[in-house]
Simulated scan of single mutants.
Amino acid sequence: MTRTVTAILLAAALGLALTACGTGTGERALSGAGIGAAVGAGAAAVTGGDVSQGAVIGGGVGAATGAATDADDINLDR
């Protein structure tokens, strides 16, 4: 597996795990984008990839995942 594919998969997995930050769809999409961008950039930096590309891909994956979740998919101890 190439480093780029590894970085994308890592960003997707971590973004999916962390997109539950927020109560509304917009909040989850926004927090997912921020978290995904950070994770994507970090994964790209660690694997020697393009940090900007990693941030864009991670942000997109995080935003899409955050927007795709709803209140029933997450547990905020409510």
Score class of each variant (00 low, 15 high):
T2S: 15
T2G: 15
R3H: 12
T4C: 05
V5A: 14
V5C: 10
L9T: 14
L9G: 15
A13F: 15
A13C: 02
L14S: 08
G15E: 05
G15R: 07
G15P: 04
L16N: 10
T19R: 00
C21H: 07
C21L: 11
T23Q: 02
R28W: 00
R28S: 08
A29E: 08
A29Q: 07
L30I: 13
L30M: 11
A33E: 03
G34N: 07
I35D: 04
G36A: 05
V39R: 13
V39N: 09
G40C: 15
G42T: 05
A44S: 12
A44I: 10
A45D: 02
T47Q: 08
T47L: 11
G48M: 08
G48K: 04
G48V: 07
G49I: 05
G49E: 15
D50F: 03
D50S: 04
V51M: 06
V51Q: 06
V51G: 00
S52M: 09
G54L: 05
G54I: 13
V56T: 08
I57M: 02
G58C: 08
G62S: 03
A64K: 08
A64T: 04
T65G: 10
G66I: 03
G66R: 01
A67F: 03
A68R: 02
D70V: 03
D70K: 05
D70C: 06
A71W: 05
A71P: 01
D72R: 00
I74A: 11
N75I: 10
D77R: 15
R78F: 10
